[in-house]
Design a binder for these strands. Structure first.
Lengths: 119, 119
DNA sequence: ACCTTTCATCGTATATCGCCGATGAACGAT
DNA sequence: ATCGTTCATCGGCGATATACGATGAAAGGT
C-alpha cells in the first residue's frame, strides 16, 4: 500500500474496487452471462466458461465483494444476480472522473493560464 | 490466462486493460492531477503524491500503455497529458456493458421466460 | 569539464492474482 | 444410511503487481 493517501484518494477507493473487479475479461463475461438469466448458479457459469469450478467461485466472490453481484444462498445452489444499480453507479463514477478531466482541460484552454513548471 | 476465451471475450480485452489501469487509487489520482495542468512532468506528480520517483514513473507507464495518457518526451522533462478521448471511450464501453445488463434484465421481466435451470 | 536535475530502467523484496485439484459441508434422491 | 450434486474454501504453484533504492542517460547550468 502507498504511504500517504490521506485526502481525496480515499474517495476513489470505492470506485477503484469496482473497476478492479471488472478489470478481468472472465469477470466481465460472467457479468454478461448472469444478466441473461433470472438468477443462475455457479455451475451454469462453469459450463459457459471453461474454467474449474473453484476458479469461477473465486471470480464470483470478487464480484460479490465489489458489490456488483448479489448472492442468494439457496438450498443447494446459490443464486447469483447482477446488481444493476451498483453497476450503473460505478459507470457514473467513472463518467464523473472523465468529465472532471475534460472540464479541467476546458478551463485551461479558455483562460490559458496554468503551466506545471515551477523553476 | 484463461484457457478458452475465444469469442466475445476478446472484445473485452481493450476495456479490461483500461479498467485495470484505473483500478489503482494512485493512478486515478495521477489522472486527476495531470488533467489540472497543460502537461506536467513526472517530478510534479512525485511532489503531489508522496511516492518514490521510480514508483510514479511505473504508474505513468501503466497509464500510457493503457492509452489513457500521452507522453511527449521533452528535452529533460517528459510531458504527460491525459487522453480525454480515450478516457471517454473507456467510459462509454463501460456504459455499454451496463446498458447490456440492464436491457437483458428488462427483456426477462417483460417476457418472464428464461430460468437458468436445466435439470 | 563538472555538477545538478529529470527521468527511465534494473534488480529485488513482498504481496496479491489466477488457476488448479482436493476436501468438506449442505442438501436432495434412492 | 448412502450416494450424487453443488458450492465454498484451503493449499500450492507460477505469474504479476507494487513498492523501493541504485544506476545510467540526457540535457542545462557553472
Amino acid at each position: 500500500m502507498p504511504r500517504s493517501l490521506s485526502g481525496a484518494c480515499c474517495a476513489h477507493h470505492a470506485m477503484t474496487k469496482g473497476l478492479s473487479a471488472l478489470s478481468h475479461p472472465v469477470r466481465v463475461e460472467i457479468l454478461k452471462h448472469l444478466s441473461g438469466y433470472d438468477a443462475c448458479c455457479c455451475k451454469d457459469v462453469v459450463r459457459h466458461l471453461h474454467l474449474a469450478q473453484s476458479t469461477v467461485s473465486q471470480h464470483l466472490k470478487v464480484l460479490v465483494e465489489a458489490g456488483l453481484v448479489h448472492v442468494r444462498p439457496e438450498r443447494q445452489s446459490s443464486r447469483y444476480e447482477v446488481d444493476t444499480e451498483a453497476l450503473a453507479g460505478l459507470t457514473e463514477a467513472l463518467a464523473r472522473l472523465t468529465q472532471t478531466c475534460i472540464d479541467a482541460r476546458k478551463n485551461r484552454t479558455s483562460s490559458h493560464g496554468a503551466e506545471a513548471n515551477d523553476q
